[in-house]
Design a protein around this nucleic acid. Structure first.
Lengths: 161, 161
DNA sequence: CCTGAAAGTCACTGACG
DNA sequence: CGTCAGTGACTTTCAGG
């Protein structure tokens, strides 16, 4: 993981469909070298995937909410997480510190659907209470934070295949 | 936006680097047709971008937190959002209902950095109080929700260029 | 709106410094 | 670990149904 790898990562975070030739041009390397480096980054688990980002409202998912999941005393967190994963409306799931076990991000098309989804969440075994925060607008989301990529990696796990 | 577009979108959300030829094969269309459709989806703002997803801990961003931002009575939300965007550590920013104006997702490398970032957040003009929830583990994140893509689009804005 | 062909570009591999 | 060169695949455009 040197400066060139970091530049490649930064470029691919901005444009996940950039060609190897294109990447090579912007960072000053041949396409085959870039190809090799990207392959290693993928194999090492640094780059975990490439995804198209879709404007949710254009596909009928205009309602977003953040829901805190308060578990019952006897709940198993792993089982709870699995159950949460079973709901398609749950886009992200974070285990958190505090009296809530999880915070999940839910996306649905209407507030009626939100009500339905919250009902399903509450009915999950191990869920004692939910606390819902409705998102009014997403100012920005998933923005690349390359602060650590520009200079020396400071807190990395040092993972190297 | 017909069923084929939805299939293309679903495929590109799973693999943002899928080639047009590949997409054409999986949904039964020629590469040139796929190329045309994807171009229109991009122009219509349905697909807003393609991004590589990086394992945060491998790039020295192992600490995640969700921070609620409680504004002062006189704060302007748009100015606040702009100030929040000024911090590289703030990866996502949601305007929410409730007594907190925003919930932001912060990613840093260490808890020391988290403390620094929270200090910076509190020092932003218009920020009265912050409420921090430390993320212990990310169970899943940004998972594609194609529930609306599989059948008729129900709540779409009908945006068409 | 799609197909099919044609030209340019790229991915991917292997040999080599 | 890098460049260079070659083949096969893909992108992209355009004429046509």
């Amino acid at each position: 993981m040197d400066a060139l790898d970091r530049k490649i990562i930064a470029a691919l975070r901005e444009n996940g469909r950039a060609t190897y030739a294109e990447l090579g041009r912007t960072i000053g390397l041949s396409a085959s070298s870039v190809h090799e480096r990207v392959g290693k980054l993928e194999a090492a688990g640094v780059i975990t995937g490439y995804h198209a980002v879709v404007n949710p409202s254009t596909v009928g998912l205009g309602v977003t909410a953040l829901v805190g999941i308060q578990p019952t005393d006897t709940a198993e967190n792993d089982e709870l997480a699995e159950a949460l994963a079973g709901l398609a409306e749950v886009e992200s799931c974070y285990a958190v510190a505090g009296d809530e076990a999880f915070v999940v991000k839910v996306r649905v098309s209407t507030v009626d659907d939100l009500e339905l989804t919250l009902g399903r969440l509450r009915r999950i075994t191990g869920v004692a209470r939910t606390r819902t925060t409705v998102v009014l607008s997403t100012r920005f989301e998933g923005r690349p934070n390359n602060s650590e990529l520009d200079d020396e990696a400071t807190g990395g796990t040092g993972a190297r295949p």
